[in-house]
Amino acid sequence: MTETPDDPAPDDIDIVDTPDGNEQKNTDTDKAAGTPSAKSENSDHEQIYDLSAFKVLTVDDFSFITDLLASSLKELGVGKVIRADDGEKAKNLILQSNGIESGNSIDVLVLDWLMPGMSGKQLLEWIRNHEKESIKFLPVIVCSAYTSNDLVQKARDCGANEVMVKPVSADKLAKRIQHVIDNPRPYIRSPDFFGPNRRRKKEPFPGDEKRINKDEDIKQSYEKP
C-alpha cells in the first residue's frame, strides 16, 4: 500500500485559546485538506475509521510479537506499519520520520515495555523529553505483560497515552488505537512530568482547537500543596 502524505496542516504549534475559537475546523475544511473520509457509518453516532493514511511503528525485541502486531495492524486497515526490534533502532526511525517535516510522520507507537538494551521506559522518556513537537507529542501505546497497577502507573508517569496488557489480541489493539484517536488527553508540563494528563477528565476535549492553560481544575491537580 502506498503511503499517504501526513496531515498538511501548516503548523504543529499550540496557540493560546482565543475567545472566538479561531482554530475551529469543519468537515469541509477537513476534506479540502485532503484527509480521507470515513468509509461508512456504523450507527448514528459511530463511523468506521479509515486508517489507511496511518503510519504505526511497533517496537519489540521479540520478532514474533512485532510480526503479530504488524499483521494485525495491517488487517485493521493501517496503511503503513514499520518495525524495530530495539529501542535504538526505534529512535532512529522516529528521528527519520518525525524529526524533519517529511510529511511521512509516525502517527502512533506501539511499544514493548520490557526490552534488552534501551527499554520501553527509556525510549518513552527520550520521546517525551525531545525538543521537537512532532516527537514529544507522539501517541504511545505501551504494551506489557505486567498487569499490576504499578506498571500502569509507571508507564503513565513516563508519559504513555495508553497501556495494552499482553497477550495481544485484535480487540485490545483496536480498542487502544480507537482510544488514542477518540480520546486524546491534554498534555501536561509540570516541574517533574511531561505527558498526557494522568487524570481522566469528565468532559472530553473534542480536539477541534489548539489551546493552552484553559483547565484550571487540571492545573490545580498537578500543583503541589
Partner: peptide, 27 residues
C-alpha cells in the same frame, strides 16, 4: 504547570470531522 490541548489530527486523518461530535470505531 502548562496544559496543551492539541488539534486531534489523528481523528481528522481517520476521516472524521472534529466538530460533528461523532465517535468513530475500528471496523
Amino acid at each position: 504547570i502548562e496544559i496543551f490541548h492539541r488539534i486531534n489530527k489523528l481523528k481528522k486523518k481517520a476521516g472524521l470531522s472534529l466538530t460533528s461530535g461523532k465517535k468513530g470505531v475500528v471496523d
